[in-house]
Amino acid sequence: MSIAQVTDAVIDIEEVRKKYRGGVEALRGVSLKVPRGQIFGLLGPNGAGKSTLVKILLTIVRASQCRGEMLGKPVGDQATLSRVGYLPEHARFPEYLKGREVLRYVAGLGGVAKADAIKKSQELLEVVGMEDWANRKMGSYSKGMKQRIGLAQALVNDPEIVFLDEPTDGVDPKGRLEMRAVLNRMKDEGRTVFVNSHLLGELEMICDSVAIMDQGQIVRQGTIAELTEKTRRYEIGVMGALGSEILGKLKTHGVNMEADRLTMYHQDAGEVQPVIDLLRAADVTITSMTEVRQSLEELFMETVGDKGPGAAMPPKLPKKEKA
């Protein structure tokens, strides 16, 4: 499904701009639509403006300019925030509170009634696997455990959208696997999950659609399938050398030959069938056939050039005018 065709968008913003004091332009006219019920990934190198965009949607940062809506209400509407969950990057929760108390504290700030908060907290502690640790203080938790509590607190008000800023930061591989399961569970429950991350492999596995940000702008957005469509190709492995006659015929089908591998750039597997027929007719042994797509990481690198994750330069400062 193309994002452009989506009408039920939980976030629909246009021309969002943010200029910090000192002239640093963090966002330069961001327009974005996030479909309901999907896991949406926002990618970009450090300093691209991902966190600023999320913070604007959550009223943590005030936009210099913002048009659009979140959950059908203008961005900045305070009541809407009760329908939103958020796990900030490097989240800090009071160390003197127990895990269970953190959930009740966040629920209370969100205006959730005490009885509901108690019930929901217990349920979420089980979901994130922290029920055995719930009565210990946050100060005694490992980074991964804190992140699990962070994830649970983002859900304690039963939100329609959950914003997760680098949710797998500090989480071990097993924890990441479990977190992916939790994210998929959120999606199954009908929530929209908005993930900011630079771990592209993680996002590729869970996201339905993504947007790539660079230097304060959205440079690409769509489903992963759409974005990687152009690079779809089929690779056929063959055994032994091919004769000149068949090589000539293969070239007419747009086949590239490299060592023992034939490569064809086609969108449809049906277009590959004549090539297989040719190979079979010439008694060529086919060892493998693979559909290959560009990975999200390759797409990302192609989009932002050599400014890969962690390698981005900070935004340029405005030049001071001479008096």
């Binding site: 913070k55 959550l58 009223t59 943590i60 305070q78 009541a79 809407t80 925030l81 009760s82 939103v84 958020y86 900030p88 990057e89 490097h90 989240a91 800090r92 929760f93 009071p94 966040v106 700030l109 969100g110 205006g111 607190q153």
Partner: peptide
């Protein structure tokens, strides 16, 4: 007011 702490509080429906 530390980053990661204030974010949670100000993103809630409380002025």
């Amino acid at each position: 007011l530390e980053s990661g702490s204030i974010d949670v509080a100000v993103s809630k429906p409380i002025s």
